[in-house]
Design a protein around this nucleic acid. Sequence first.
DNA 1: ATGCAATTTGTACTATCGTACAAAAGATCA
DNA 2: TGATCTTTTGTACGATAGTACAAATTGCAT
Lengths: 236, 236
Amino acid sequence: MVRKSTSKETARKPNMREAILAAAEELFATNGFNAVSVRDIAHAAGANPGSVTYHFKTKDGLLLEIYRRHCGPMNLRRSELLAAARRVRDLQDRLEAVVRAYVVPAFTSGSDLAGGGARFTRLRAVMSAEGNEVARKIIAQTFDDTSHAFIDAVHESLPHIPRADIVWRSHFLLGALYYSLVTPDRVSRLSRGEADGSDAASAIEQLVQATVAAFQAPALDQAAPARRRPAVSSKT
Amino acid sequence: MVRKSTSKETARKPNMREAILAAAEELFATNGFNAVSVRDIAHAAGANPGSVTYHFKTKDGLLLEIYRRHCGPMNLRRSELLAAARRVRDLQDRLEAVVRAYVVPAFTSGSDLAGGGARFTRLRAVMSAEGNEVARKIIAQTFDDTSHAFIDAVHESLPHIPRADIVWRSHFLLGALYYSLVTPDRVSRLSRGEADGSDAASAIEQLVQATVAAFQAPALDQAAPARRRPAVSSKT
DNA sequence: ATGCAATTTGTACTATCGTACAAAAGATCA
DNA sequence: TGATCTTTTGTACGATAGTACAAATTGCAT
């Protein structure tokens, strides 16, 4: 194949479609859907506004395509890791492996899409916060299966914990995961430089450790504010 | 100046300013900042678009005023509860009280503002996700003191845990808290009706329980070498 | 009632939004 | 090469955005 470049290095355009998708991902993930205009995206991608319409018809269509590209690979990776985690014999180790199978694909690249894992997860976090309709539909029908599989796997390792409690705690996990990707600078700031919020490896380890402990907490067998039962040492 | 507030009917339109603030809060918290127009807000408040300009000058000014009204009372309530929590003698109980002091004001009304606690927290979550500039400035200069006080209080109860770890875990707490307010329906859906995601009391108890356990997890540097970690491929 | 300041209304201006569409440019192959 | 299809460009249109501003209205002290 003969490449004729060396003229413009402003992001070679062998595939303008990809450039638009990448630019849109980044802009949506950092500024939200409505704050970003089609012209912003086109400019960031070095493309013409009309080109966005040509490839994706509408702005919603562009968002839809971003989801379509990532959901498959990420869910595939998750179920592979989850299947491997289920085969871990030690119960304690298995729980950690299960949590890791859920967390790692969200932070790292799922396939050949360059560094797209964390970016796409951040995008999902922002769309979720904005109550984006396009995203809501895709999420419910694409990720609920994965979430149920994850919850079931956790429940297998912790059969004495009610399923509802596990749902709550896995919900907290997703919230923590999202927030870590949305405002990593807050970690750096509050730790006064002792921790780097944008270091994916640290975030994963911290999140896995904290989440495993949270899952292992005693169950809330009563919704009543009648304090805890003496599961762990209590005072008087 | 003599204020004449004899009428008990405070519902109709004695204060259009308040109605606009409440409507803006609700709309921003559910749809994001950019998705809501000044006309939307005015319509929801039963006011004229020009009235918004009159009271708050700009759309940013409106958001600023929302923050101004809530930050004070919420932080006051938090420091009161935190001070009370610090006086709990039993270390285990104290940790739970400290976490509760952080969580409860975020879910419940902080002052006379009707049911505004959860709504304002949801608003903060959405603004954080959108990377809103107005919100970012206020947050950093208003909530960092409270966050540091909270982190210090947790550290007092868990002196053997490195401060950086506590920062991470309290960051996870805030993320979980935000997400619980942003998409409570997900909890109901994934639990197949066994749990009600929009029940504030349940959310608080579940979050407190899970978070206390997460804080009590062993520190990362002592946990890592001791145990064999399940193999999981991760890239940068 | 009368006057005055505070508030609400109605409207208009400019900027920018998403999107459509025709023309230009590039690619592909008989 | 010329024909045909794909992609990019440039421009335009209607809708809606934030905001300004004058006129109309209201609330209160006199």
